[in-house]
């Protein structure tokens, strides 16, 4: 059976295509293709495998997830060790002065007596330099073991200083307390100065003792 309609359509096939898509459609297809490409590449990256061959016996494969975990562990270990080292090196609180340690803890004290900060800085630097000077002497060699006594004395002064500092916040008579605090600091310097003088004297005597016999020896020969 002949289909005249079919024949007609075949003859005019081209003319039936009269619609056209919007010209922007290609751009939309392009962006969609890029998005899909990006989505395809993402999982491929994650699945990337590093494989290291040690001969034929040992085959060590590690993917990125493993590497990430390993890196995290290394980082945590490093942090832990650093913290531990810092703690080990940190000066024990008994060695430091209450003057210095209190500064961070109670800022309100400096609101009551603003000049205190300056005073503290001055005296603590003095005390510290004296202490350094003292530490240069080898006390045991010089036959002195009373250093502990001095340390105790200094610690007592330090604790009374802390007490005074606390009082400063509550008492209305700030001038008196301040005076007491400065006196406290001055006493410490005096104690240290006295100790230094004693040590210097002892050293001088010892030097004389060691040089004199030497001179004797040379004269006898």
């Amino acid at each position: 059976m002949k289909d005249r309609l079919k024949e007609f359509v075949n003859e005019n096939r081209e003319d039936f295509d009269m619609f056209e898509p919007r010209p922007e459609l290609w751009q939309e297809i392009c962006t969609e293709l890029k998005v899909q490409k990006a989505l395809e590449e993402k999982p491929r990256k994650e699945a990337k495998v590093i494989s290291i061959n040690f001969g034929e016996r040992l085959n060590f494969t590690a993917d990125f997830m493993f590497m990430r975990v390993a890196a995290t562990i290394v980082l945590l270990l490093a942090c832990g060790i650093t913290l531990w080292m810092v703690k080990q090196n940190a000066p024990t609180p008994t060695n430091s002065l209450a003057v210095a340690t209190e500064t961070a803890g109670q800022p309100s004290v400096y609101q009551v007596a603003p000049e205190l900060a300056e005073v503290e800085v001055y005296y603590t630097s003095q005390i510290n330099s004296k202490r350094e000077e003292l530490s240069e002497y080898d006390l045991k060699v010089l036959g002195l073991d009373e250093t502990r006594q001095i340390d105790n004395e200094l610690a007592r002064l330090d604790s009374s200083y802390t007490r005074l500092k606390n009082q400063l916040q509550t008492t209305p008579n700030t001038d008196q307390v301040m005076a007491a605090m400065i006196q406290n600091l001055q006493i410490r310097i005096e104690v240290l100065n006295h100790q230094l003088e004693v040590l210097k004297k002892i050293e001088a005597i010892k030097e004389q003792d060691t040089t004199e016999p030497k001179n004797n020896e040379t004269t006898t020969i």
Binding site: F19, E20, P21, R22, L25
Partner: peptide, 28 residues
């Protein structure tokens, strides 16, 4: 091919927007 394919889709769906969707989907 876009024009010919768009008209194929137009004849089946009889809807301009739908045909564009089909064309995009088909090419991708």
């Amino acid at each position: 091919y876009s024009k010919a394919m768009f008209n194929v889709s137009m004849r089946i769906t009889n809807d301009y927007a739908e045909s564009e969707d089909v064309l995009q989907e088909a090419f991708i």
